[in-house]
Structures are given as structure tokens and as C-alpha cells.
Design a protein around this nucleic acid. Structure first.
Lengths: 152, 152
DNA sequence: TCAAGCTTGATGCAGATGCATCTATTGCCT
DNA sequence: AGGCAATAGATGCATCTGCATCAAGCTTGA
């Protein structure tokens, strides 16, 4: 709670745990997907947003806002997803620069398959280790660490 | 706390927060280093371990245990660090395969410079946002999510 | 109305990562 | 000893990321 420039020991410890645990868990989840021959987590993030967006789809810049991928990253990720038939790019009527990305039926299927594995990972790695109250507490505390915008 | 395969909503939320916040914070810290013309965080992790190890240095496989870098990752990272004079590789007497990595004076300097910026990031990004008690709580809760080994 | 500047999205290039595999050495087991 | 497996570390190759920059389309203001 101080404003000194040197971090308190508790802050250092919390930081270290945060970085280490998040990386570990991410890797575990990624590994589980790979073991089932499924695409990487990044695909899930995008397919999830697009599935929620529905038939209207989303513009790439909206995906950038919702996920925290960089612009060039989304650009190429979408190219890969399109090449694989998971999404389709539609021209947008009132803006000749833009495009609307819509998830395809195949994309919805992929998303569902991934969730079966990803969701299980979350249940095992987090859900099984802390109680509901503790999980809520974690969310609340981490929520206070978010950078400016955000809502998720 | 259940063992069903579908994760509880609290678990999903906590997972999402964890992934998002950790990435954001990591990026902020990384950005701060870059803005000061300093090397990436990965360098800090290794230099930190080596600095703690002292004159005796560490074997690459020990670094792999302490950090969570992959073997090939450490191998190339050390090559870069050595090329930049931050560490030196010494042959090891009783094992012809191995080598001992020791931090150089320059490496210690780099580590110190990086800490000035990195430590400030930690103070600002977490130290200033939660109380000492809350930070301790975060560490404790995250600690329960660690995968098998670990101690940090 | 048209030039200057902003926004949207793509891309060339350098560097980093992931994967599989390779070499060298050591340790073990018979 | 002699061979076989395990360990330590490096590396070729494909992919991915990060950075800078680009082209195309839009918007604004004089």
C-alpha cells in the first residue's frame, strides 16, 4: 500500500507466485489440448469471443479489445483460422477497410471440443484445489490488479 | 472442490482473471524494462538465480529446475547471455558433459539495473494495489494451485 | 473539395519458441 | 570389461512473435 519504489517482500512474493503459477497452469492446459490433438489456447479465446458474438460476428479490432492479443497477432491468427475453415471473413458494408469475422459451424464444433478438454483442465487445476469462496476471493483480489480498462 | 469434469463458474472466473491479469502485469513489467533499454524479463530470472548461487554457479539443469524454462530455452538463453558477457561457462571437473554457469561482474550490474525498474513495476502494479495482508492471502491461495514440485 | 491525418488491417524481416533429434558422456548391470 | 540405457546440453527446422511499416479507406477542417 506504500508508494515507495522498492516493493514490499509480500508484494514480491505475490508477484512471483502469480507469474509462476499462471505460467504453470497455462502450460498444463495447453499440454492437455495438445495431447488430444486440439489447437492451442489462443484459438479457443478467439472462437469463444466469436461464438458469444453470434451471427453478427466481430470486427478484428473488437477482438483486440476483448482479448489481449496484439493487432498483428490477431491478423495472423484470423488468417490461420480462416485457412482452416473455423471462421469466415465478410466485407463490411459501410467501411471498406474493415471486415467482419464470423465463426463457422466447424468453428463452433472446434470450440466445443476444446472446451471439453479445457474445461476439465480448469476444473482439475483450479476448481478442485480451492473452495468456491476461496475462488471468489482470488477473483476479487486479482480483479484489483487489473490495468485501467477491462471488465472481465 | 468437486471432481466433476465441468468447472464451477467460480473456477472459470478465477481462471480467466488469473490468466488475464498475469499476462497484463507481465507485459507492463516487460514494457517498462524495454522503455529503459534493458533486456527482457527472462534474462532477469536467470541472472537472479545465478546471483543467488554465488561464485559456485549453477549447472544448466539446475536452472531448468529453478525457473520453468524448457531445456532448449535455457540452452539458447545461456548462449545469448554468454555472448553478451553476462555469464561465463566453465567446464565441470567430474562430469565431462556438463558445464557450470557463473554470473560475471557485468551480469551482476545488469541484474541490479533491471531490478531498479522491475522492482518498481512490482511495487506499482501489485504493492500499491493491495495491502500486505491481502498480498499474503494471494500468495497463500495461489500457492495451493502450484503443480507438484515447486517451493517458490 | 481536397489535402492532411487517422483508423483498419496486412506484411517483411529479425529474433524467439517448440519440437524432435543428435552428440557426448556417464552410470549401471551383468 | 562391455554394452545399454540414462543424462547433459546443443541444434536444424518449422512456426510464432514483435517491431516497424505499408496500403487502403475514412474523416475532418479550412
Amino acid at each position: 500500500m506504500t508508494e515507495k519504489t522498492a516493493p514490499a517482500p509480500e508484494a514480491i512474493k505475490a508477484w512471483a507466485r502469480l507469474m509462476r503459477v499462471s505460467r504453470q497452469l497455462m502450460e498444463s492446459a495447453e499440454e492437455a489440448l495438445k495431447a488430444d490433438g486440439l489447437p492451442p489456447l489462443a484459438w479457443y479465446d478467439v472462437l469463444h469471443e466469436l461464438a458469444e458474438a453470434g451471427e453478427g460476428g466481430l470486427r478484428p479490432f473488437q477482438l483486440i479489445e476483448r482479448t489481449l492479443f496484439a493487432q498483428y497477432n490477431i491478423s495472423r491468427l484470423l488468417a490461420r483460422l480462416e485457412a482452416d475453415g473455423q471462421v469466415e471473413k465478410l466485407p463490411v458494408a459501410d467501411d471498406g477497410r474493415g471486415q467482419t469475422i464470423r465463426i463457422t459451424a466447424k468453428g463452433r464444433g472446434t470450440r466445443r471440443d476444446m472446451w471439453a478438454v479445457y474445461g476439465r483442465s480448469i476444473a482439475e487445476l483450479v476448481g478442485a484445489k480451492l473452495s468456491a469462496d476461496e475462488l471468489t476471493m482470488v477473483s476479487a483480489l486479482l480483479g484489483r490488479l487489473r490495468q485501467p480498462p477491462a471488465s472481465n
